[in-house]
């Protein structure tokens, strides 16, 4: 399994220094956004990373693409350790590793027409040799994401949210990447448009063999699109497994309550099911609980949970869980 992994993180850590000032006295505190996160993604598959806001899922994606310098741990891409690689050495990887952002309104430069947004990276990475070739390629990409020729010279504000997300996808696609971090690519879109984008992503994976890290808070969408799923809570990966194993045989109490909180669009099923409603809020990552991060809201918490951070343990078939008292 590890041989086929195109991307691997080992104990990835991303800490931020937060400066606080109170009555003229400054102090620096550490916010542990990502703490010892390890997982691997096989080529051509989709790894869904789910969790609530502030759990560190986006930070994982950004640290992998070296948009942040990791505080600790390793990121291994296709057998090469890229964690401390210089920007110059990393340049060819920039092409291979792309990103699709959540907000199609802020991730496209409002002063550039579509031809420039998609075309500039083509020139930068020398994927085209002249302007005519570049224009042809832009047109081809625009068609692939379902837009038309007369869209090429327009500016981002002339498009709807769904169309803008298509432009963002075309921009990533232009690089003919191998690996794409999709950071909440559909959260800002209406339901009827969401399905259009999901289908495009699935279609391209089939055609080009893309590997996706699909970051989302929407467990229904993640179940639909992913082959493997990881669940994060307060900076830690608490459980990961193949999609049907995770949704059918969850072992972590957090995974269970997260799934039971998802509203299902079926009135009878919604009425019939037993919901586990978590009490309270997610603790502040500036002041996380000792031991297991979830213990303050966990119904299965034992005294040991306050003392020791549980390690991710393989319970068979690549299903890993970090819990002292997992569900049976």
């Amino acid at each position: 399994m590890t041989d086929k992994a195109i991307l691997k993180t080992e104990n990835l850590r991303m800490f931020f220094d937060i400066r606080t000032t109170a009555l003229g006295k400054g102090s620096v505190r550490q916010l542990k956004a990502v703490n010892d996160v390890s997982f691997s993604i096989e080529k051509g598959r989709t790894f869904g990373l789910v969790g609530e806001s502030g759990c560190g899922k986006t930070t994982v994606g950004r640290a992998i693409l070296k948009l942040y310098r990791a505080t600790g741990g390793r990121v291994i891409y296709d057998g090469t350790d890229i964690t401390d690689m210089s920007e110059r050495d990393f340049f060819p990887y920039r092409r291979k590793m792309q990103m699709i952002f959540q907000d199609p309104y802020t991730s496209l430069d409002p002063r550039q027409p579509v031809s420039e947004i998609i075309g500039a990276p083509l020139t930068l990475h020398r994927l085209v040799s002249n302007n005519a070739e570049r224009a042809d390629r832009v047109r081809e990409l625009i068609h692939m994401v379902g837009l038309k020729d007369d869209h090429i010279n327009r500016y981002p504000h002339e498009f709807s949210g769904g169309q803008r997300q298509r432009i963002g996808i075309a921009r990533a696609l232009a690089m003919m990447p191998e690996f794409i971090v999709c950071d909440e690519p559909i959260s800002a879109l209406d339901v009827s448009i969401q399905a259009q984008i999901i289908n495009i992503l699935e279609e391209f994976q089939e055609r080009f063999g893309f590997t996706y890290l699909f970051i989302s808070h929407d467990l229904s969408v993640v179940r639909h699109i992913s082959h493997d799923v990881g669940v994060m809570y307060l900076g830690s990966l608490v459980e990961a497994a193949a999609v049907n194993e995770l949704y059918g045989n969850m072992k972590h109490p957090y995974t269970q309550s997260l799934l039971s909180a998802v509203p299902i669009a079926d009135p009878a099923a919604a009425r019939g099911r037993k919901r586990i409603i978590l009490e309270g809020d997610v603790p502040s990552p500036l002041d996380p609980p000792s031991g297991c991060p979830f213990r303050t809201r966990c119904r299965n918490a034992l005294p040991v949970c306050a003392q020791e951070h549980p390690n991710l343990t393989d319970i068979g078939g690549g299903h890993v869980v970090a819990c002292h008292n997992m569900l049976v």
Binding site: I193, Q194, A195, N244
Partner: peptide, 21 residues
């Protein structure tokens, strides 16, 4: 209804989005 994915759905049915906007 047919463009939403379902957390309880085990099969990989293709979503049928509504075209256009």
């Amino acid at each position: 209804l047919s463009s939403i994915s379902d957390a309880a759905d085990t099969g990989k049915k293709k979503l049928s989005p509504i075209p256009g906007s």
